[in-house]
Design a protein around this nucleic acid. Structure first.
Length: 798
DNA sequence: CTGATAAGGATTTTT
DNA sequence: TCCTTATCAG
């Protein structure tokens, strides 16, 4: 038996051993799917003798790609150790181990295409984008820049407000951006967006889209959506290129298949079947498509992911047979991660969803401890309670360390309260997500220099660095230069570098401009000859960026300098991992990196992150905080049953991250932004968990005394507020009380209109809970929905 | 052209 | 509350 099949269960072995043809692996949480993927790649190469260059493996994050490469390297090196020395890996001296690994790296790992959809297809575009024929005649070169969300946002804002002279309040750039992104994900051109949106608004959106596309091309830049859309169009229109990549990628593997969108699916199809319909395709000689996923963990529909693609695999690629007889589907249902209690809770929760592939998680571990549920007064008390639990646990269990614990939440903003408590108690922690390393101002500034060096047409980057650090080039100068560039129809940099033109502009800024040109020309001359890390260093020094930070001398400037040094390290690391990586490739990897990619797990710290970021990870102890209606599930999902199901899947993902201990909590009151406190109702998901598995205050059942106490708390608080109102605004308190009594007796229904003493008029959109405990969600003019307790809120029916 | 100060908007989730 | 953007004085 192949070494790569040893130690696997039957289902895993079936998946790994599948040689050619299509296979769908339905892999529940913690069922060893990463193991199956890695072993399969090792098996294809080490056993079937597949050429590493013929593999395309799509992972969901860059970090997952890196980990997979590492595990592969080890697996193959171990096999090599056996065949070469006839000796188990562990008995080899470290020097030998290192040599074997480096040989595997050179011969195998370096050749593999493993990465995210975006990273892999950006790479493909580096080869072939110059052959792309755009329907409107736009074109790009291989030196294209990749624009992040901020770049895109400002580009669109400029088109809307400057070019089209529209009021950004009425025609919101953000919404337009979203519509354009959505159009791209559907593969639409401006005309189709116009038809879809309809009317005057559709016309304007299409016009913005058209101009946006032109602006991107003028900058020789692509956005994230283009990295997938352009390859689809290219592979469709150019048979030669399609043939090449089809022949090249004989084995295609996709992880987290439930989170692919239409465009990504089209890419897979084009590569695997060379443009034919999957159901007609039968040339599987030496070829396979292997997808792994779990419909219950599909949590990215907001960026167009569509888990029906996974559910349809059996009908398009597969044999369409039933579970028992099919040769194209394997289910991994044995869970090696969590205790039986945690799994039972997760299974019970997800059973409330209707759109699923039938699947259960079977425990392989003991029952474990009950799930703990805690109700807290507010988010600060919640954070304190979590930290208290952490300290107790850490003290009681010597084998548990901070690195074993994670706090998961629905929104990034929730990290703040947690951080404050952790700092107060001196517990080390790390926040994953939020601000990306590569999104920091100083990092973006230096990278903008690099982008400009590679791609002089990149005006967005040029404008970013032209006066950073300060060179006395101000608004009016930039305006004049931009006018010139528009009139001449050439990129801004062509104008800036024209010394004669600059001198004729006169003024004080000429000196700064000439200085800037000299800097860029000097850097450009050496850009291709020196390593990215060296170039980063030169940019930092020669531009005067670091000097300015030193002059500034503040703590913040110190921080920025440290970050810039970190950027040099990142470039060094990149060079180490990608020996032949060019400057362009380094910039692409920076553009496509996520925050989670850069975080090391070595250090012993509590991890704080969103539920989305936790996908694919596991922790012995998990705290799931903010389990409240309107927060988790989020407001926006309350209207839409399928959105609510997605939130439930997100909850399922959260629960199944925990290996041994799971703590759930919710607050009865939460401060949203500016000190405004809002009452909160326990999440509906809590009531969907079997109460026998839970210890603590279970909402919606029993606990009358707790409820009374809770109500008392709220009443005292509200009364205190009322008395303040009385003190400040004369008679305001009395009517408010009267109003409240009247409103309290009313039974509310969806659609009812009401008036709130400070929010104005609104309409009831949802009801939560039942009987005495009912809460209402109300949409007020000009603000997001609010959740109110009708017995306490200062409201009256209209 | 730069720095300071005021006003206004923000919170879903991310490659 | 905090961060980004607009406006104004020097």
């Amino acid at each position: 038996m192949s070494a790569f099949l040893a130690g696997l269960n039957d289902a895993q072995r079936k998946a790994v051993d599948h040689h050619t043809g299509p296979l769908l692996v339905v892999a529940g949480a913690g069922s060893g799917k990463t193991r199956a993927l890695t072993h399969r790649i090792a098996h294809l190469i080490g056993h079937h003798g597949a050429d590493p260059a013929h593999l395309l493996a799509v992972t969901f994050t860059n970090k997952a790609a890196r980990e997979m490469k590492e595990r592969l390297e080890l697996l193959l090196a171990q096999k090599l150790a056996q065949s070469q020395f006839g000796q188990p890996w562990s008995t080899l001296p470290a020097v030998e181990q290192r040599q074997l690994r480096s040989r595997i790296y050179r011969e195998v790992i370096k050749e593999l295409w493993i990465g995210t959809f975006h990273a892999l297809f950006a790479r493909l575009l580096r080869f072939d984008i110059d052959k792309f024929k755009d329907p409107e005649g736009l074109s790009w070169t291989r030196q294209f820049s990749i624009y992040d969300e901020n770049d895109v946002q400002s580009l669109i804002k400029e088109i809307v407000t400057q070019e089209l002279q529209l009021d950004p309040k009425r025609f919101e750039p953000k919404k337009v951006r979203w519509a354009i992104s959505n159009a791209k994900n559907q593969g639409w051109m401006p005309e189709q967006l116009e038809a879809d949106a309809g009317g005057q608004r559709g016309k304007l959106m299409a016009e913005t889209y058209r101009r946006y596309r032109r602006a991107l091309a003028a900058n020789n830049a692509l956005d994230f959506d283009d990295l997938l859309l352009l390859p689809v169009q290219l592979l469709r229109q150019n048979e030669q290129i399609r043939n090449y990549w089809h022949r090249r990628f004989r084995h295609v593997l996709v992880d987290e298949y439930q989170d692919t969108n239409r465009t990504q699916y089209d890419l897979i199809k084009l590569l695997v079947t060379n443009g034919r319909e999957p159901s007609d395709y039968d040339d599987w000689d030496g070829r396979s498509v292997f997808v792994v996923g779990d419909a219950d963990q599909s949590i990215y529909s907001f960026r167009a992911a569509d888990f029906t693609i996974l559910m349809g695999f059996q009908d398009d690629f597969g044999d369409g047979a039933a579970s028992e007889t099919t040769a194209t589907m394997v289910k991994l249902e044995e869970n090696y991660r969590s205790t039986a209690t945690i799994l039972e809770a997760a299974n019970a929760l997800i059973a409330h969803n209707s759109e699923r592939i039938d699947k259960v998680l079977r425990p392989t571990r003991g029952e474990g401890e009950l799930i703990s549920l805690t109700r807290c007064d507010d988010e600060i008390a919640e954070a304190e309670a979590v930290v208290h639990r952490m300290r107790m646990l850490e003290a009681a269990h010597p084998d548990l360390s901070w690195g074993d614990m994670a706090v998961l939440y629905r929104t990034n903003a929730q990290s703040r309260a947690m951080e404050e408590s952790l700092v107060r108690w001196g517990i080390p922690y790390i926040v994953v997500g939020g601000l990306r390393f590569y999104d920091r101002r100083e990092i973006k500034d230096v990278l903008a220099y690099l982008k400009l060096l590679v791609n002089p047409a990149d005006t967005v980057s040029l404008l970013r660095v032209l006066n950073t650090p300060k060179r006395g080039i101000g608004k009016t100068t930039i305006e004049r230069l931009t006018d010139a560039s528009n009139q001449l129809g050439i990129p801004l940099w062509e104008v800036v570098r024209d010394a004669e033109a600059v001198r004729s502009l006169g003024g004080r800024s000429a000196k700064g401009l000439l200085q800037f040109c000299e800097l860029i020309n000097g850097l450009q001359a050496c850009a291709q000859d020196i390593a990215p890390s060296e170039l980063v260093q030169r940019v930092m020094e020669q531009s005067g960026y670091v000097a300015e930070l030193i002059t500034e001398g503040t703590d913040e400037a110190e921080d920025r300098r440290r970050n810039l040094n970190e950027l040099v390290n990142a470039a060094l690391q990149y060079q180490e991992e990608n020996e032949e990586g060019s400057l362009e490739d380094f910039l692409a990897s920076a553009a496509l990196a996520s925050d989670a990619d850069s975080k090391d797990t070595e250090q012993d710290r509590v991890t704080l992150m969103t539920l989305h970021a936790s996908k694919g990870l596991e922790f012995p102890v998990v705290y799931l905080v903010g389990m409240e209606q309107g927060l988790f599930p989020s407001y926006r999902s309350l209207e839409d049953p399928s959105a609510l199901e997605e939130e439930r899947r997100l909850c399922y993902v959260g629960l199944t991250r925990a290996k041994e201990r799971l703590f759930l909590s919710h607050a009865s009151e939460r401060r949203l932004w500016g000190g405004m406190r809002e009452p909160a109702v326990p999440s509906v998901f809590l009531s969907e968990l079997p109460s026998a598995l839970i210890q603590g205050d279970i909402p919606h059942s029993g606990g009358a005394s707790i409820r009374r106490e809770q109500r008392l708390d709220r009443l005292t608080r509200v009364d205190r507020e009322d008395s303040r109102q009385v003190a400040g605004g004369g008679a305001a308190g009395a009517p408010a009380n009267a109003v409240r009594r009247r409103a309290a007796t009313k039974t509310w229904a969806v659609g009812d209109r009401l008036r709130h003493s400070s929010f104005g008029e609104g309409q009831v959109t949802h009801l939560f809970g039942s009987g005495e405990k009912v809460s209402i969600a109300v949409k007020f003019q000009g603000m997001g929905p609010k959740i109110l307790d009708p017995r306490l809120a200062p409201i009256e029916p209209v």
